[in-house]
Design a protein around this nucleic acid. Structure first.
Lengths: 413, 413
DNA sequence: GTTAATTTCTCGACTGTCGAGAAAAAAATC
DNA sequence: GATTTTTTTCTCGACAGTCGAGAAATTAAC
């Protein structure tokens, strides 16, 4: 059922437009806001006045007056309007960052996650404790934190903040909302790590290419394999998704995967899988829990010197990835693929197999090889993706709250 | 870049809401419109008055007054507001239907398509001729036809009406807009056949389940294999897509497919593929152009009596489909799968393989077997899908044209 | 005929956007 | 230093849209 529209909705949308212009381009003056949003000057006046009254944006300190004429007043999101905590869960550590409403990093620390006691219970306990700590360190009351944005590898529900499956906790689901709601009124959102990388890359590409941007896939190579897809819908919004690519079936009944199934892509292209092939271990051997990257580096060196078995390990991984990607392209439109994660250091060894695995398929024969790129700084991209997503959802929430209406009445009364 | 909103847009959306309510529930009175759209009575008055003045809807003849009180006046789309031609291209024939704006079938004929001379040129010539004819038979001027909705099997561009690849014409693309625009001002849209089946089924499901409906896949089994996916986005719109499922890679370097690639799903599950397996023909044999269904029926009969080789043919096809579907489910959320097309008559022989092919994968182990259904009347569903899609796009176009504003000025002047 | 029930229409209030021009404020010029 | 120019921001009136409440219309029941 479609929802009706109304004049209030118009205001919400346009206020959102103003906020997102400020996010994208930094502090802007009245005139620039009018240009970017294509709203009339009068409308911009009303909206900025409302947002200012509602304490969501503020006039920033005068910049050195540059030309003649009346000097501009720049608007920017109020830093103290609210706070965001970003939690990046990786296999061996959890990183906590406190960010203000303007997107500025305020505080950050990481905590090792002991591999032995890595049950869900201990993670949740550590999480609750660390969240309390990061708020306390900046003397923030819990209700000043408007959002907690969490990311992890694994399978993420796409409506609730529930981790359905993860390489570290398997099928032990974690419902972050349930676990944190007693202490935090903040909105909790959860994203797959590679999904956030895709979100960040999508934003970058859109900034570069303007309206040309259509879609993009991010492929993260590491102990496990992640895929994130971002597509621009007809209204210009970015739809991000995190397919279960690492555990898509590569070969029916094939190599044993960490997840317990057989023949997953990860069971051929994950670090542990490459190690297995290199050492010629039977494919139904239970996968190693953890592979030091130095081990793989050794294999890579040998492969680069022509070591047959080691070359094969990378080639086989590449083939699994290429075949999988060809299947992704069969089910979506053609899109560039950005490869990231610790595994990019073996890109030279993998690319042959990837391209071969892609080339066999009907889509690639039809549309040609997709553009393949490499992005080194995965961690930066993850954080950037967090910020993009969290702040834009936050803006949306705030605008939807009808801040203008409510606050205006408060001021009047 | 997001677009700004305005009060005019509000009217457009709400007018669209009124029109789509009329489409969905048939002729409705003022009060019912107000109920379905959740718009106030006053707003419904203004919108219906506008649409009536613009000759888009009309008050239908009084129904026998049922209760006491002022009798209702029912609104419905004006039949003569415009016309739609539906063209269903199948392997051996093309069906033309003329439909009025209210969705009522006015005229229909089919034309055999001779298999020998089946080049693009001859198809286009026949198409142009038949379109002229169907309009002439009902004495319609060409500009009264507002839309021509075409469907075919194969790969369809998702923004322009261009057939990128089809089982019959291969890589000879057909740009229907280019080919018809000299004679027709109508908007030309093109859809994949199974995509339209999915659209029709999605509408049906939504009507049944209300807001519960999330997503659905339609799988069409025949000489070739089609897949359509429909998903409800957060605004309630149905997003339909037609992945290149039939030519998604099943086994790298596997059986030779009609498309020239190797190992496509179709090369295991298409009718010609099943025949190949049944007769133990080598997998790299060039596929038969056409398989009479009687041939397959014989094989099915034998298989149902336990003929080993024939059982295998269906099982292998089922496995290819099951594996492919598991990959689809890895890349999308869990959704029910509706199987249709001439191949459903072998459902009893295929289902074992399908389920086995699904069962091995990580997604199915996680989320359980997806719901599998069968739909017999594929042709009806295709036509229904055409109507759903075409009329709703038409409504949208009309509303967006600002019919109300322009026409009001015309009337006033 | 009168009353009750039901549906549709109309009016005034409210919220939105927009264009044009007034007001503000600093640099340039006389 | 006063005046003009330039640039930016604000304000006003016009117009488009929705809504709630109540008036008007119309028929069945009494």
């Amino acid at each position: 059922m479609l929802a009706k529209s109304s004049t209030e909705l118009v205001r919400q949308k346009n206020s959102g437009l103003v906020l997102s212009a400020l996010r994208q381009h930094g502090p802007l003056a009245h005139t620039e806001l009018s240009d970017f949003t294509r709203l009339s000057s009068a409308t911009v006046s009303v909206i900025t006045a409302d947002l200012e009254r509602a304490q969501i944006i503020e006039k920033s300190e005068q910049q050195a007056t540059t030309g003649r004429g009346r000097p501009r007043v720049l608007f920017s999101p109020r830093r103290d309007c609210g706070y965001l905590i970003v939690v990046v869960i990786s296999s061996n550590a959890v990183q906590y960052s406190l960010v203000d409403y303007s997107g500025r990093l305020i505080d950050r620390f990481s905590e090792e996650r002991p591999r032995e006691t890595s049950g869900v219970v201990s993670l949740v306990a550590a999480l609750r404790d660390a969240l309390r700590r990061i708020a306390a360190r900046s003397q923030l009351a819990h209700d000043q934190v408007l959002m907690i944005s969490i990311s992890s590898k694994g399978l993420v529900d796409n409506s609730e903040p529930v981790l359905r499956w993860s390489p570290t906790f398997g099928r032990d689901e974690i419902d972050f909302a349930a676990v944190l709601s007693d202490e935090w009124s903040a909105r909790i959102i959860l994203g797959n790590e590679t999904q956030l990388v895709a979100a960040a890359l999508g934003r970058q590409d859109e900034n570069k290419m303007g309206g040309e941007f259509r879609a993009l896939a991010a492929l993260s190579l590491g102990h496990s394999i992640g895929l994130g897809i971002v597509r621009r819908d007809e209204e210009g919004h970015h739809q991000i998704s995190a397919p279960n690519f690492g555990h898509m079936m590569h070969v029916p009944g094939g190599a044993l995967c960490r997840c317990g199934a057989r023949g997953c892509i990860e069971a051929y292209a994950g670090f542990y899988a490459m190690l297995r092939t290199a050492f010629d271990v039977p494919l139904d051997t239970i996968p190693a829990k953890f592979v030091p990257i130095a081990e793989l580096d050794k294999i890579a060196v040998s492969a680069r010197h022509g070591g047959r078995r080691n070359v094969l390990a990378f080639r086989q991984a590449g083939l699994a990835l290429g075949n999988g990607l060809s299947r992704v392209l069969s089910l979506h439109e053609r899109m560039p693929i950005v490869i990231t994660g610790p595994g990019v250091r073996y890109y030279d060894l993998l690319i042959g197999g990837i391209e071969e695995g892609l080339a066999e398929s009907h889509v690639v024969r039809m549309e040609g090889m997709p553009e393949l790129r490499v992005a080194i700084d995965e961690q930066t991209l993850v954080f950037e993706g967090h910020l993009n997503r969290a702040l834009s959802i936050l803006d949306n929430d705030i605008v939807r709250k009808g801040a203008s209406v409510v606050e205006l009445r408060d001021q009047a009364g």
